[in-house]
Design a binder for these strands. Structure first.
Lengths: 189, 189, 189, 189
DNA sequence: TATGAATGAGTTTTCATTCAT
DNA sequence: GATGAATGAAAACTCATTCAT
C-alpha cells in the first residue's frame, strides 16, 4: 500500500492523488488506508521520512573518497542516480519540497531539507575553494542544479551519473576553463 | 481581480487557491470571475502569458552589453530581481512550471518555458567557454540555480542582483578560482 | 433572435438551451434578450403561441373537403408536413407538450393542446364510424400516432404527406383490411 | 434510494430532479448517492435498464395466445397496465425516451427502445393483415398511440387494460367498422 | 435598443475522513 | 485487519436574471 502511494505521489503529485486512487491501486478499500496511517498527510510523512533516511544512507555510503571534490562528486552521483533512476520515494520527496505545506508535513519536509543541506554543507565546507568564493552560493547553486534535473531529465539521455559529474565539474572549474589545465575535465577517470 | 488571483496563486499556489478565495479577495461573487475568464485554468493562463511577456521584455531590455558574460549576468540580474522582488506574476509562472498540468495550462507553461530556454540558449551560445564545456549543462545548471532561489530566498538577505552575480561568476570561473583572474569578481566588495 | 431561439429550442430542447446560447446565436448579449422578452419562459410562450396559431391556420386552410375522412386526411397531411418539414416552431411546440411545466408556460401549452384537441375533436365528430367505435380513442390514437412521428421520422424516408395518409387510412380501414374492398386503400386518388 | 430516484424522475423528470432532491427523499446526504452510483446519469441508466428488463419479462409472460391479434392485445394490455399503474420506473423509461441525451444514457435508451421495437416488430409480423397494409406504419401507429397515453391518462378514467384493448381493436378493424365482424369487440360490455 | 458587469441560487461532483460491524 | 456505507465540507462551474449606463 505504501508502494502504491509512493508510485502515485511520484507520478501525479500529492495533491492530485486521492485516497481512493491509492486504495484502488493497492486493491483495498479507502477505509483500510486509515487502519495503517491516520491521515493522507501522515502517509506522505512516512514516505518522505523513509526517503530522507535513504538519501542520507546512500550518500554517506557513496561519499568515501579522501579528495573533497571527488567526495562531493560521489555524493552527487549517488544522489542523482537514486533520484532519477532508483527509489521513487526520493522523487516524491524532491517534488514536494517546493510545495507549500503546513503542519506535520511541513516539519517533515523541513527536517529532510535540513538534512540535505547539512550534508552538502559539510561536503562543501571541506572543499578547497578560491578565496573569494562564497560557500553558501556554491552549495545553493549545486542543489539548484541537481534538483532541476527532475524537470528536464528523460530516460533516453545521459545517465544520472554522467549528469552529476558534469555539474560538479562545471561548478568546480567554471565554464571558462583553465588555460593551464586543458584536460583536467574527466575527473574520476 | 487579476491582481487578486496573482497574489493568491503566488502565495498559496494554484491548486490551493479556490475561485471563492479569489472572488473574496477581489470583493466580488465567485460567479463574477467567470464573466472575465471562462475557467480557473484560463485565469492562470492569462497570468502566465502576461508574466512570460514580461520576462522576455525585461530581460531583453536589460541584456545589452557587448560582452557575452556580462550580458548573461545582466539577464540574470534582471530576471532574479523581477522574480524575487518585482511582479508577483513571475513567481506564479516559476512555481507552476514544475507542476504537472494538462491541456491549455500545460501548453501555455511549455510555451513559456521554451521561451525561457531559448533566451538562455542564445545567451549561453554566445559565451566563450572552454573546449570541454557542454553548453547544455551550463544552461541547465544556471537555470536550476536561478529557479532554486525561489526556495531559499528571503527578503532580509542579499539582494537579488547580488545573488545573480554570484551565481554567474561561480559558473563562469568555477569554485577553485583562477589565480590569474584579477578583478572579475565583485563579490565581497 | 426569435428565430435563433426557435432553432435552438427545436434542436436541443428548452431546458438544454441557455439564454447565453440564444444570445450567441443571435449575435447579441444575453442582457439584450431581456429587452424583448421578460423571461426565458416568455420567449417559449411567444414561440408556442405563434406556432399554435400556425397550426390552426394551416390546418383549417387545408381541411376543406366535403368528405369527412378526406377532410381529416387533409388536416393530418398539412399538420405533419408543417411539423416534420416546415416551421421549426411547430416542432418546439410538439416536443415541449409532454414536458412538465408550470405557470405561464403550462397555460400556454394547455391552451395549445386544447386547440389541437378541439380541432381534431371536430374533425373526428364528423366522421361516419362504426357503432361500437369510441371517438375519444379514435382521436387519441390518431394524435399519438402523429406526434410519435417526431421520434422516428428522418428526412430520407417517406414524405410527411405519405405518412399522414398511411396513418389515416390504417385507422380508417383497420389492419385486417376489408374483404369486400381490396383496393380501396389509395384514398385520395 | 433507487426508489426515491425512480419516484422523482417519474414525477418531475430527470432534468428537473437534482441529486439533492434524491438525497433528501432518501434521507441521506447528496454525497452518499455517489457511493452507490458514480453519476446522476448512471443512476438513470440503472433505472432504465431495470425497467427495460421488466418490460420484456412482463410482456413476454403475458403474450402467450395462439391467435396473433390476441397476442398483440395481451402484450399491449400488459404493457399499458405496467406503464400507467405499475412500476414507476417504466414511466421514467417512457418519458425519457423522447429526450435528447448523449453518452451512456443515450445508449441505454436506444438499447431499450430497440428492444421495445423488436418485440412489437415480432408481434406485428405475425399478424394476418390486408395486402396493402404496411406493417411498419402499423407498428409505429400502435407505439405512438400507446406512448401517447402517458400524456392524457388519468387514474379516474378507463382502466389501462381497457385502453389497450380499444387501441388494438381500433387498429385491427378500423374506425369504419366491419358489418360482418360479430363479437370481436368487447368494448362497451 | 443594447450591453458590460455582476450576482444569488443553484448544479454535479470530489474528497478526506469516520464508524459500526 | 478490513470494509461497506455514509458524510460534511468544499470544489468548479452554470444560469436566468438585474441594472446602471
Amino acid at each position: 500500500m505504501l508502494a502504491a502511494a509512493v508510485e502515485l505521489f511520484a507520478s501525479r503529485g500529492f495533491d492530485a492523488t486521492s485516497i481512493r486512487d491509492i486504495a484502488t491501486a493497492a486493491r483495498v478499500q479507502p477505509a483500510s488506508v486509515y487502519y495503517h496511517y491516520p491521515s493522507k498527510e501522515a502517509l506522505l510523512v512516512a514516505i518522505v521520512d523513509r526517503a530522507a533516511a535513504q538519501v542520507a544512507d546512500q550518500i554517506k555510503a557513496a561519499a568515501q573518497s579522501d579528495d573533497p571534490w571527488h567526495r562531493l562528486e560521489q555524493a552527487c552521483v549517488a544522489h542523482l542516480t537514486a533520484l532519477l533512476q532508483g527509489e521513487r520515494a526520493l522523487r516524491v520527496l524532491a517534488t514536494e519540497i517546493p510545495s507549500r505545506r503546513t503542519g506535520a508535513v511541513h516539519q517533515a519536509l523541513v527536517r529532510t531539507r535540513d538534512a540535505y543541506e547539512d550534508m552538502f554543507r559539510d561536503l562543501v565546507a571541506a572543499l578547497p575553494v578560491g578565496p573569494a568564493v562564497d560557500r553558501s552560493y556554491l552549495r545553493l547553486t549545486l542543489l539548484g542544479a541537481i534538483n532541476w534535473t527532475l524537470i528536464w531529465y528523460h530516460p533516453g539521455g545521459d545517465a544520472p551519473a554522467t549528469i552529476a559529474r558534469q555539474i560538479v565539474t562545471l561548478i568546480r572549474q567554471g565554464a571558462e576553463g583553465k588555460p593551464d589545465a586543458p584536460d583536467a575535465r574527466p575527473v574520476s577517470g
